[in-house]
């Protein structure tokens, strides 16, 4: 079944209140994130505060004239400064949250079908690229092996050691053209390779 993508906004809040994606802490966090309304932290608050984009993915079932929420994803920006802490501010694309409903996890039935999670990942990566970003980053909990494997499958690598909350920072370089159009690359203006070698 084909995914139908809808940009998320506050008027859709009531439609996603039954969304469930698992019982682990990060699943509960994702559920709460998409279901919460300001002043509680969540998707709507992140749209308003950080200008994030959030998408819902539905499948339409014609027989019952019903639609099902398969999952959601989001895309924002992170700022960083070179040299820290007071250097020039740069931006890179960032996936704040992404989840697939329990009901739609795993491979759908039928030949030549993709995991919904892969379709969702491909959509976010495509949008980040279309927005002109050259780097896409996210963080994943160190115990969330399944998500980590999924991100690695889509070209992300762990580049940061885990922080105090047990999160690993991952990055995907979106293309190999160093001076193509779009937004300036964070890395082009970032540390020189000679600096990096001193790690």
């Amino acid at each position: 079944m084909e995914l139908r993508i809808q940009e998320y906004s506050a008027d859709l809040l009531s439609q996603i209140q039954s969304f469930e994606c698992g019982t682990d802490d990060w699943c509960r966090h994702a559920e709460r994130w998409i279901k919460s309304a300001p002043p509680f932290r969540g998707a709507i608050e992140s749209i308003e505060t950080h200008g994030n984009k959030v998408w819902l993915y539905f499948v339409d079932v014609d027989v019952f004239d019903e639609k099902y929420l398969v999952g959601f994803s989001s895309l924002g920006k992170v700022k960083w400064k070179i040299p820290p802490p007071d250097g020039l501010e740069r931006e890179a694309a960032f996936i704040p949250m992404l989840a697939v409903s329990l009901r739609f996890q795993g491979k759908p039935e039928g030949e030549n079908t993709k995991h919904y999670s892969d379709e969702i990942m491909e959509h976010v990566i495509r949008v980040a690229r279309e927005q002109g970003h050259r780097e896409l980053c996210l963080y994943v909990h160190e115990d969330n092996a399944r998500a980590r494997r999924k991100y690695e499958k889509h070209g992300f690598s762990v580049l940061g050691s885990k922080n105090s909350k047990g999160n690993l920072a991952m990055l995907k370089v979106l293309d190999n053209q160093l001076s193509e159009g779009g937004q300036p690359s964070a890395l082009e203006s970032g540390p020189r390779l000679g600096d990096a070698a001193a790690l």
């Binding site: 960083w80 820290p84 963080y139 940061g160 999160n167 920072a169 990055l171 890395l187 970032g190």
Partner: peptide, 11 residues
């Protein structure tokens, strides 16, 4: 979360 070391590795 994405610190200086992260961006250096990214470069």
């Amino acid at each position: 979360v994405f610190d200086e070391v992260f961006w250096q590795r990214a470069a």
